[in-house]
Design a protein around this nucleic acid. Sequence first.
DNA 1: GCGATAGTTATGCCCGACACAAATACAAGG
DNA 2: CCTTGTATTTGTGTCGGGCATAACTATCGC
Lengths: 248, 248
Amino acid sequence: MKLNLDSEDELPVFRQLAKALQQKILSGELQPGARMPAETVLASENGIHRSTVREAIRALEQQGLLHREEGKRKLFVSRPNTEEMSRRLVTPMVMNGVTFEEIWEAIRALDPVAAEAAAHRRDIDNLKALDDNIARTKAAMDDPDELVKLDIEFHELIAVAANNRVIQSLRLPISDLFYPSFQTVMTSLNASERLLTAHEKIVQAIKWGDAAEAKEWMIKHLNDFRKGYELASLDITGPAEFPAKAGE
Amino acid sequence: MKLNLDSEDELPVFRQLAKALQQKILSGELQPGARMPAETVLASENGIHRSTVREAIRALEQQGLLHREEGKRKLFVSRPNTEEMSRRLVTPMVMNGVTFEEIWEAIRALDPVAAEAAAHRRDIDNLKALDDNIARTKAAMDDPDELVKLDIEFHELIAVAANNRVIQSLRLPISDLFYPSFQTVMTSLNASERLLTAHEKIVQAIKWGDAAEAKEWMIKHLNDFRKGYELASLDITGPAEFPAKAGE
DNA sequence: GCGATAGTTATGCCCGACACAAATACAAGG
DNA sequence: CCTTGTATTTGTGTCGGGCATAACTATCGC
């Protein structure tokens, strides 16, 4: 694999290499799954030093374009995982102090549409997963921690049922950011009944293919949450915090 | 800056270093703007080799946690730019073959809420920018290319006017993905009048603080676009392509 | 044919070095 | 005293080469 590295270029060689490789991947010349040559090979074939190659590889690895399975040595071209990449937005968002309100508004935008879409597709498997989630919710009415987990899962399932990978990915970072405050809300308020009802109504509507209804209830559900946030006397305009085990 | 690197740890040293540094940054111990020690210093202070340090630094650089201005050598801790990071989702999305429909649905979720929010805030400066955009749109009615640019800008301005950084960032990658097909639509159809009308109605509604109306028109506008896509006999269920000059 | 063993890679890290751009200290000129 | 040109000192980009060890192969004996 010889790449054309221009020594006239003012860019550092390792960047040129990264760019060249990236292009080869994006253009499809190197397809996901393909084995990459060893570092030494890449180095000598291009007349550069191995450490230079390594630095370039690190970058592409971060972007998810290259990947090696845990513990193994062989390097492969890979298709970056959208959800994983999307989750990386959590850090920038928190560091830039996005407020709870901004986050809520975003989920308020995505989830109702997801519910709507889910009602249109009505996939059997997804519905089963949702039913199962509701069953477990009923069994956990007194366990706030578990309820929080189940609610997060519920919303994720809705996004899955919507069969829309873009929405699914984009909601991930916001969903993560929700976690901590949601926990507070559920622990200090007794909102489990309302939560369950809303979930049930949503699933019901999806089953009947009633998109408008599904959407409506999702909106109600989200509004409820916002009210809960206020009732728990948390500051809507305050910055979001790092979710406990975000990222790793 | 001494970090605790555990040689018992099975993780490669450069990863441990990256993790340790990242943590120091996330915890606020190292704040954005702080100058980082030189590579040589980091290396000797932690008893590791400089090349190892470099590899770790590359990773944090990719995540936007470290940064050095073009051509300079001083390394600073920095606050990752959410929008920039969000744009990185374009590659994974395209490589995973997300369809135009998924993208449309996502923007269909975000933009109406943005319009709604914009109507609530009604910021003077933002309104001025929107008016300006409309004026330029009127002047470009016969120039499809320009119209496309202006429309993209319009939607971005709405998101800005909504004053919601989360929505603003999340829409970026999808907005980018739209570009190519939008261009096709505008060139093959004569939709400029409808586009202008919608834009005007939306801005009007925002000015009056009529959130519902703003939202409604945004939805109409987006539906129109979808219809246009079909009329231009493009395949809604086909995969999105790389925007011409995405990323760079 | 199959499992165990003896190579052969390839990677993770390290040592040491050098050129050259950049940051900084310093000296001469206005 | 301040400005500006020049000499130093840093710090980075890259390179050469090296070693231990985990992975991967090929081979041998049963």
